[in-house]
């Protein structure tokens, strides 16, 4: 799979580390979260069959993180 690094261009997926779902913010008030809410933050992630907003890390290249949207069925990327 070719992954479009915003800095380096399209590179093979083997050059990257996969970062899973994008947009999961560290909770502003961890101490205020219930155990269930906290478990949600640590463990629950979207896992869609279809468009997925995900993160990649160009570990063997520029070492920058970025997000894109990829279809998890066709693997087509529409950043």
């Amino acid at each position: 799979m070719l992954v479009p690094c915003p800095w380096c261009g399209e590179r093979e997926d083997g050059e990257f580390k996969y970062g899973g779902a994008a947009g999961i913010a560290y909770p502003a008030q961890p101490e205020a979260a219930s155990d269930t809410e906290w478990a949600g933050y640590i463990f629950h992630r979207p896992n869609p069959k279809g468009a997925f907003q995900e993160r990649w890390y160009h570990s063997a290249g520029c070492r920058r993180w970025f997000a894109l949207t990829r279809d998890t069925v066709t693997h087509r990327i529409n950043p």
Binding site: G19, Y57, W65
Partner: peptide
């Protein structure tokens, strides 16, 4: 190092 970078760049 990857852990440090992840927090710095994404959070």
């Amino acid at each position: 190092l990857d852990w440090f970078e992840e927090w710095l760049q994404t959070e």
